[in-house]
Amino acid sequence: MLLKHAIELAEARSYLVALADHALSFDGSMEYERVLLELDELHGGVFPPITEVPTSDPAVLYQVAYHAIAGLEAYDLDAFGLELCLAMLIAARETDTRS
């Protein structure tokens, strides 16, 4: 894993975790965690650690997480798997905001 890839993956993971921690509902939190698991699975269980994020605004967290996951396409990853992750993230957001 290249350094730039690791940094972007760390960013995506960190913002997903922040979304799960600041979720409005139990179901929303569980769905964000599922996205994290899927993303880690996509990387074969090899990933950089989570770091703290500078904000707790769900809208900002979501936007950063979305673009970080979308940006991983540049690193020779399975594009279909990434699209699934993004779809799961959108669904998680809907679940969280609906409840």
């Binding site: 139990f26 569980m30 965690e33 599922r34 698991l37 880690d40 699975e41 269980g45």
Partner: peptide, 18 residues
Amino acid sequence: PTAMNLRRIIHAQVRVAH
């Protein structure tokens, strides 16, 4: 289980207990 599967099991057990 592998670490990933262990995390998946723990994740599911949260919901099962809930």
